[in-house]
Design a protein around this nucleic acid. Structure first.
Lengths: 354, 354
DNA sequence: ATTCGTTTTGGTAGCGTTATCAGACTCAAA
DNA sequence: TTTGAGTCTGATAACGCTACCAAAACGAAT
């Protein structure tokens, strides 16, 4: 980082006293009505004469009045804002998530608070607590490290808390999740259809719920197709990024696995795999096919473009945000499940063999 | 989007009345002191006896008390939160920006509000207004479409408003920006050093401030090196994404431009260029070298990995956030400029010729 | 003991909004 | 004209906190 120390000698400020903000009282005074009536108009309460409503609305517009949401939050004990807790906004998957949630929140004029909570249960719990301090009542939470038991506790305490991309059985109706197992099956079937039977898996060393479902799904599809794997070829990476992908494929190679295709737990790992293979002179997809999972931005940007399972994370987050806002307004103890399906996106990293 | 309508019949909730939140009064009562003293402890006011302070802090911890920030904001007329306005979180460049700002805000316990403002001046102004309504006083604003005159107006009104990646001359000390011109020069020099003299530019149809600086920088470097371009080869795309990149290179090709290297205004456009070239059987970098700008995530993901100018957007945003928070606390009418330098990242998309 | 400065404390009045209740105004029916 | 049932409106008390001022409490110096 380079910051030039060039000083600009600026004139002094004119000390202009910032035009004091207009309050509900100003609107009341100007309109000749009481704050109560103005408040009713703001909140869309029906018990107000048409002419009064019109007058108040006119004055509000003229004065550029905006209710102070802090005061509203104070008295109503609800902030009308949406919190989003994710590991890292800068990762494409999560930034899509945030984007989806932001879209939903904007529709209902909810401000969006985001908190990065990376790497540990403590970070995740701290994030939730900081949102609570802001009296944020609707929360979309992408938890990775927090124990289910803790999450149950949180869900009991916070009616507007929605889990995304993770299933907490006792609160299934508060989870917006993806059928990773089915997705993995579909990806596997696609490889099988293309003649691949020697399929290796690239996944995480310490599998998350999703990673587990992914591997399970692949096994189901392989079994169902009658592909007998005396022992499954599984390469594991310690992290879910490109490095993890490289690590996993190196493992696979050093254990002498023979495969014509690789299924990777996510796009980033898949790209790590591809990079490592190409570095070793293995062509993708001519020698080995590779499929990812997520269909994140990088999938369509890479060369070859990645065949992958599209995970509708933006729509899921949009849905989750609406649900959170809804439940924050009126808690419900049960309801339907919110299950989304990934679907296959065929691009260039998988090739037909035989 | 597929949502399964599977209904879970859940037991009724136990109607547990959410343990009412502890307030400053509770702390005061339990500690046997007044709310004033407790408030002093919270705010770190020095005028409080050591023993009292210790006692209050103990009780606060025991009761799990957290100040209600809405009440604090109401009385202090400042929200102590940081707003971030960007075109789209889901774009890697901006999600890095958000991430940097979030990091800075977390240090000072400022919640982070994000607002997408895509595509128009109105969207950007609406975003700022929505933050104002939240009484958000520190704002980092990545403006693209708003006229400078409007931005000056905003800057005058909001002391904690910082512009990122755009220079507003009258408020230079409130801008955290990048020397794109120098960066473009450096990229150009690198191509020249590698023997390229027929260099084409890929940029935007309607150039933003940054795009203009980029093209200017290239011209400067070319002139300086004595490379005479009777007429510069410039291909223009209507948008700054892969499609825009493709569009621009197609323009270049159809106008019959002869080049051995392309400088693209950003990484995404550069990748669009590469995709289009490869599609047409032109090898990168063997036949044509391509360099990008930004060093966003995708630059290291593609094959070939992209040679590009690293733009330290995360550090810039971190710096901008700190500045915004600082200025919101105590406005200043002048100060130093905050200029960051991009630097070259050599990867695989540029090849030496001759 | 009295005085004085200094440190420490508590009481109270808001901040801008909403909820609640009671009061005032309609208008039709008696 | 009175009555009653609506419809509409306004006064007021919170919400949880901080700012301000005044009152204690404490020593040290007289």
């Amino acid at each position: 980082m380079v910051t030039l120390p060039f000083i600009i000698s600026d004139s002094l400020d004119d000390q202009s006293v910032g035009a004091s903000v207009v309050t509900i009282k100003d609107v009341a005074r100007v309109s000749g009505l009481s704050t109560s009536t103005v408040s009713r108009v703001i909140r869309g309460d029906s018990k107000v004469k048409k002419s009064s409503r019109a007058k108040v609305q006119k004055i509000i517009k003229e004065l550029g009045y905006r209710p102070n949401i802090n005061a509203q939050a104070l008295v109503s004990k609800r902030s009308h804002s949406l919190g989003v807790v994710i590991p890292q906004v800068s990762m494409p998957f999560f930034s899509s998530l945030v984007s989806g949630a932001e879209g939903a929140a904007k529709e209902t004029h909810h401000p969006v608070l985001i908190v990065n909570a990376y790497g540990s249960e403590q970070a995740e719990l701290d994030a939730i607590e900081s949102l609570q301090q802001s009296r944020c009542d609707a929360i979309v939470f992408h938890s990775i490290h927090t124990r289910e038991e803790k999450l149950v506790e949180l869900a009991e305490r916070i009616p507007g808390l929605i889990f995304i991309n993770r299933l907490i059985a006792p609160f299934a109706h508060r989870c917006v999740w993806l059928d990773t197992n089915q997705g993995a099956q579909e990806a596997t079937r696609y490889l099988l259809e293309n003649g691949h039977t020697n399929i290796a898996i690239v996944t995480l060393q310490t599998p998350t719920q999703g990673a587990q479902a992914y591997v399970d799904g692949i096994k189901v599809a392989l079994n169902h197709a009658g592909v007998t794997h005396q022992d499954l070829m599984i390469g594991r990476g310690s992290v879910d990024d490109m490095e993890g992908g490289k690590e996993a494929v190196i493992n696979l190679l050093t254990m002498g696995a023979k495969f014509t295709a690789i299924l990777a737990y996510n796009d980033t790992m898949a790209l790590g795999v591809i990079h490592e293979l190409i570095k070793r002179g293995v062509r993708v997809p001519e020698d080995v096919s590779v499929a990812g999972f997520d269909d994140s931005l990088i999938a369509s940007v890479s060369i070859p473009q990645l065949t992958t399972m599209h995970c509708p994370i933006e729509e899921m987050a949009n849905y989750a945000a609406k649900l959170a806002i809804e439940l924050a307004a009126e808690p419900m103890s049960s309801g339907r499940t919110h299950l989304f399906m990934p679907h296959l996106v065929k691009r260039d990293s998988v090739k037909q063999i035989n």
